[in-house]
Simulated assay, not measured.
Amino acid sequence: MADDHDVVKHGVEAVVRQNFASPEIIKVSSTNELRNQLLAHKNVDLVILDIKMPGGNTVDIVKDIKANYADIKILMYSAHEEPQYAVNFIRNGADGYLSKSQPLQKIALAIKVLENGKRFIDESFQETLFDKKGESDLSLSNLLSHREFQILSLLADGKSNIDISEELNLQKSTVSTYKKRIMQKLNINTNIGLVDAYRTDFKITAS
Results as ranks from 00 to 15, higher is better:
Lys106Thr: 11
Gln150Cys: 07
Glu81Ser: 14
Lys203Arg: 13
His80Ala: 02
Ala14Ile: 12
Tyr178Asp: 00
Leu138Val: 06
Ala86Gln: 13
Glu135Gly: 02
Leu168Ala: 06
Val12Ile: 15
Leu114Asp: 12
Lys106Glu: 15
Phe89Thr: 06
Asn32Ala: 15
Val195Thr: 11
Gly93Ala: 11
Leu114Phe: 01
Leu144Val: 00
Ile162Leu: 13
Phe89His: 07
Asn161Gln: 09
Ser99Gly: 14
Gln171Lys: 07
His10Lys: 14
Tyr97Trp: 01
Lys66Tyr: 00
Asn92Ala: 14
Ser22Lys: 15
Ala110His: 06
Ile90Phe: 08
Asp201Cys: 08
Pro54Cys: 09
Leu129Arg: 13
Phe125Thr: 04
Leu39Gly: 01
Ser160Leu: 01
Leu46Cys: 02
Ser139Cys: 04
Asp6Ile: 15
Val44Ala: 07
Ala197Pro: 03
Ile188Tyr: 05
Leu194Ile: 07
Leu140Asp: 06
Ile111Pro: 07
Gln37Ser: 13
Ser207Ile: 10
Ser99Asn: 13
Lys42Ile: 00
Leu129Pro: 09
Leu114Arg: 04
Ile51Phe: 10
Arg199Gln: 15
Tyr178Trp: 02
Asn191His: 10
Leu186Glu: 03
Gln126Asp: 15
Arg199Tyr: 07
Leu49Lys: 08
Ala21Ser: 13
Arg91His: 15
Glu148Arg: 00
Glu115Lys: 13
Asn88Trp: 02
Arg199Ser: 15
Ser141Thr: 03
Leu140Arg: 03
Ala156Gln: 00
Asp137Tyr: 11
Gln105Glu: 15
